[in-house]
Design a binder for these strands. Structure first.
Lengths: 340, 340
DNA sequence: GTCTTTTTGAGGTGCGTACCTCAAAAACTT
DNA sequence: AAGTTTTTGAGGTACGCACCTCAAAAAGAC
């Protein structure tokens, strides 16, 4: 039989009340007693029964997912998974809610964050660019007793332990390597497309991409990043201009999570010889493009896994536990038509 | 507030005892009453609180992982993950145990399975070749009230709903496509290596591989599968012979989960021009080979995910629940040095 | 209508923990 | 040493459900 709190109390030579105080970090216990209890925990191998604990706590968890208001296709997929997971984990007393913020206006975003109360949320997973205002808002949020975790978009390095998402430098490098290998002996220029280079994600992906290209692949010339600013018009414009200016384009790397327009453009080029095209994030349109052979590969981060991992991380933080690191590392997935 | 059994009883106009009888499928309830309760469940959106249920049941779950005795490196990784996960889920009242069987002797294996009692196990995840004896043993096991799920190696098609693992045809196709794309314009023969072609997994992978090769890549010639029978000597022998017989070998596809010897052989060939090599399953040695550039790609199924998924599936079966399909699909991962 | 069988209700206990109160004991002050 | 503060103990209730018993009610058989 597994030892219970009662056994622990006996083993430590203290009362149940004291065990409770130690386990839940309440004050009013001498350090000596705390140590004694902890020693007993080690000795008898006590492990708190999380099932009973959550039942007794009688308050599951309420987690919020803070997402940008302006959404691309990938965001829709994420939201779908949040809802789906929320549905399924109601039975485990976990509630999830989506909160949208205007990520282009840091002040407004920070204000929205400051409105989130510890009464309504036990934890927040946030996907937002890294700005001083948001950093501050997150700091204050933690002070209010709300756990936080960065989600897909990393915030500053220092608390990287609470980031759920992929290593974007490695993701860029993966894209670079695949591009190079798929191109084989072909030589020429490679277009790189991003919504904006203001964002950390794009910068990191580009860094990783260039790192691969600059070593060992002198036959390719990766052009400066083209910025689409998220509008179809500008996307078509910059692409048209780029193809006019460079006649030797052999590859296209779409770094942003909104690939629809660029894919459409690539498809219209079909008459000429094939251009190796790599994009990020699996969405209905990238998936279709992959099947139609317009896209050659997709670099993906499993949205379901990310959502579950964010929730597990937040829950562990709430319960003052460690997470199982191996379970929480988000893989950089390579998708081709065959392993969809 | 979420409705509890009490609310459900009131809504259905029956007593708590009857609600309990219906929820837990006990006998002695008229069909009419059962329907009434189910209708009330729908109406008020009742969802059983699994946390309270497992606590009250006062018996977590005991799951067994039945694995082959003769182990390759991949199996070690699997076992490591089973232990790691077992450790972590003790707090959730789930115990896991590894049982080894002699998979080469179907009778002995079936006998070992028949010894597993419902007193000791609530469910079994089994990794074993598909033989009539094992099929029968599994059937009887289910009759004894033990849930079963096929694990990595699929059993017959019919109950594919309880299979946790990858689609091996698709995995073979993925390997094929990568091989073709990495080779580019190079033409020549491709070696395919397996432990044995008796196993369903190898057959399916080969099928998928050939399906890709035969369409659209006439420049390659995939040679008949070489069987290693799992011994280093034979592996070296068949490889030496194959390279002697075919001077135009450009690719090597290692289908089995034990790739060490073959990788070693491939490495010794380094003097000549590079051969595109693809293997399955991430292990310490395949990982190292990928980093050392001896391997070009690795087709992997995440062992941690598989283990967790098997446990979730078994648990859902025990609780007579559906699983969230999207969460349980095991991805065919493509690994290269950059996304390890 | 009586008797038998089946179905239902009322009530209880326990799971392991959280969280609460109040009094007693122990540890420091001065 | 007396008073003050801090620490500890004893005991309770609650969470939502599983599982048990026994009696009462309803349904079916004749």
């Amino acid at each position: 039989m597994r030892p219970t709190t009662k056994d622990l109390a006996k083993a430590a030579g203290v009362s149940l009340a004291t065990v409770d105080r130690v386990l839940n970090g309440r004050s009013g216990v001498r350090q000596k007693t705390v140590d004694a209890v902890n020693a007993a925990i080690e000795r008898i191998g006590f492990q708190r029964n999380q099932v009973a604990a959550t039942l007794a706590r009688q308050k599951g968890y309420r987690f919020g997912f803070v997402l940008p208001r302006s959404g691309d296709e990938f965001l829709d997929v994420i939201i779908k998974h949040i809802c789906e997971f929320g549905q399924a984990s109601r039975a485990e007393m976990i509630e999830t809610k989506v909160v949208r913020i205007n990520e282009h206006d840091p002040h407004q975003a920070a204000k929205a964050l400051s409105r989130l109360s510890a009464n309504d949320y036990d934890g927040i997973a946030i996907m937002a660019p890294e700005t001083p205002q948001i950093r501050d808002a997150l700091y204050r949020m933690r002070e209010r007793g709300i756990q936080t975790v960065a989600f897909i978009s990393n915030q500053q390095e220092e608390d990287s332990q609470s980031f759920v998402g992929i290593d974007n430098i490695a993701a860029g490098a993966t894209a670079g390597r695949l591009m190079a290998r798929f191109l084989g002996n072909t030589a020429g220029s490679i277009l790189v497309l991003a919504e904006t280079m203001q964002s950390r994600d794009s910068l990191e992906r580009r860094l990783g991409f260039d790192r691969i290209m600059s070593r060992g692949y002198p036959q390719f010339h990766a052009l400066p990043t083209l910025e689409t600013h998220g509008t179809p018009e500008r996307t078509n414009l910059v692409l048209t201009n780029a193809f006019a200016a460079h006649k030797d384009i052999v590859g296209l790397y779409i770094m942003g999570s909104e690939a629809r327009v660029a894919i459409g453009f690539a498809q219209s080029l079909r008459g000429k010889e094939k251009i190796v095209t790599i994009a990020h994030e699996r969405t209905p349109s990238t998936e279709q493009a992959l099947r139609a052979n317009t896209l050659d590969a997709l670099i993906n981060q499993d949205p379901g896994h990310i959502v579950r991992s964010a929730v597990r991380t937040l829950r562990a933080q709430c319960e003052n536990r460690e997470t199982l690191a191996s379970q929480e590392r988000i893989r950089i997935e390579i998708l081709i038509a065959e392993n969809l």
